[in-house]
Structures are given as structure tokens and as C-alpha cells.
Design a protein around this nucleic acid. Structure first.
Lengths: 115, 115
DNA sequence: TCGATATTTCGACAACTATCGAACTGATGA
DNA sequence: TCATCAGTTCGATAGTTGTCGAAATATCGA
């Protein structure tokens, strides 16, 4: 239904605290709309150092294939940064994107709520 | 995959600024993960008076059946309040739920970001 | 009561996606 | 070099969901 979901084009954009496009917001929200993915992201966000794949898997009880898929989705949405070093990968939250999302959502609720 | 999505049980809970359960958060995010629904919610949120169905439809270019479906989803997620008076309905954002969501998401990103 | 209008429900369909096992790739250490 | 281990890709499958048209329901005005 939405054409521009797969291509991780826009994910590579900085989008620091820029206003997110509607399409961008939707693709991020889609990425968050899966319980496993949300939990994974939560895990990534709350660890001080970048999270390894093994730790992530321990928390989720899903197959490596599925985990890989979810990681790709989160990355495509621009929510996480994936660093591949040798055999391992490290996952970290892109806090700039995260706060853009929050800002975007906050402005939605706040609109005309100047009561 | 998530069992408790359809029943609007939890939607009826107050949940003012209470911490949302993981399941609840997921069901809300699912509701937001559709572009049409998000746009509809945006429309609802930014109007001062409760939005009528006709106005909503004008903004979305979808069939009445589909609109009804989306409204039901948003209501089930607890994001909007639907008031049926005679032939018409009026939609309004549940700002308490909305801010619970924002709070929940904010705390996710803020965790351990005490650097 | 009758017809028009607003919204919902139903049934169906196509597209999407979460999930897995199996096979694959690539790095590391013996 | 070779076995092993981390992660990915592939193909298949089952379940979910956005969408619509048509039929149903409900309200209101004449």
C-alpha cells in the first residue's frame, strides 16, 4: 500500500532534528508496530554499549533468521545503526532519529491544543 | 500474532498518564502504522471541535467502509473517542492516551542516555 | 409511512509480513 | 587448510490487514 517502504534510501538521510515527512513517519511507525521489534529496540536503547546479536537473541527467543530480518527492518527505518566488525555486529539506537519521531508525534497531539 | 488486539477491553481503561503495558504500546503503534489512519488521527487531533465522518472522508479519499474500519481500529487502540449521536459520529483524540504513549516512547529513548 | 442519508457489517480478495529451516557466506582460530 | 561459529539469504508458509462493493441498519424529514 505504501510504495516507498523497502528502499532504505531515506534511512541514510541525516534527519537530525528535522521534521519528518509523512512517509518517513509511517515507515518508522511500521517498524515499531511489531512486538518483537519494539522489544529489540528497547533492548538496544537501554544498553550503554552497542548490543551484540547474541545478547539480542537471548532476549527474544526467535531464530537467527528472524532476528536478522528484524534488524534489517529497524535499520531500513533508520532507527538503529548497524556496525559490522568481523564476525559480529553491534546495534545502537540513532537517538537523533528517535527524537525526531518524538517531536513529530508530540506536535501532532499538541496541535490546536492551545486550550 | 498478538492475541489481544481486537478486544477493546483495555481501550476502556483510563490509562491517564499511567505507564502503558508492552502489549498496549504495541497495539497503539499498530494502529498508527497505517498512513491513512495516521493522517486521519492527525486530522482529528488538529481540529478544535470533534470531527465528523464526512469531513474525515473528504481528507482521505477512501470508501465509507474503509473509513469505518479505520475508525474502529483507532477506537480499539484507545486513541480516539467516538460519540454517536443520531446519524452522525464525532471523533476526538484521547489526549491522555496520547501523552501516555509519548511518555512511554520518550522513556525508551532516554534510558541510560545519561551521558 | 416512505425515502434519503449516514454509518456499519459482510464477504472477498490481494498484498504484506513474521516466522522458520536449510543452505550459504565470511571470519577466526587451530 | 579446515572446522567452526556469526550472521545472512532463500523459499515457503501461515496469518494479518487494507481495501472495496454490496447489503444491512438506523436516523431523520416530509
Amino acid at each position: 500500500m505504501n510504495a516507498l517502504k523497502k528502499p532504505p534510501l531515506e534511512a541514510s538521510q541525516p534527519a537530525r532534528t528535522t521534521r519528518l515527512s509523512r512517509a518517513r513517519r509511517t515507515s518508522i511507525l511500521k517498524a515499531l508496530a511489531d512486538p518483537n521489534r519494539l522489544q529489540l529496540l528497547e533492548r538496544i536503547a537501554c544498553s550503554t554499549c552497542p548490543l551484540g546479536c547474541a545478547e539480542a537473541r537471548a532476549a527474544l527467543a526467535i531464530s537467527p533468521a528472524t532476528l536478522s530480518h528484524h534488524i534489517k527492518e529497524l535499520e531500513a527505518a533508520g532507527l538503529i545503526h548497524v556496525e559490522r566488525t568481523g564476525k559480529f555486529i553491534h546495534l545502537s539506537l540513532r537517538r537523533d532519529v528517535w527524537s525526531s519521531l518524538l517531536g513529530s508525534l508530540a506536535s501532532l497531539g499538541a496541535a490546536t491544543s492551545a486550550k
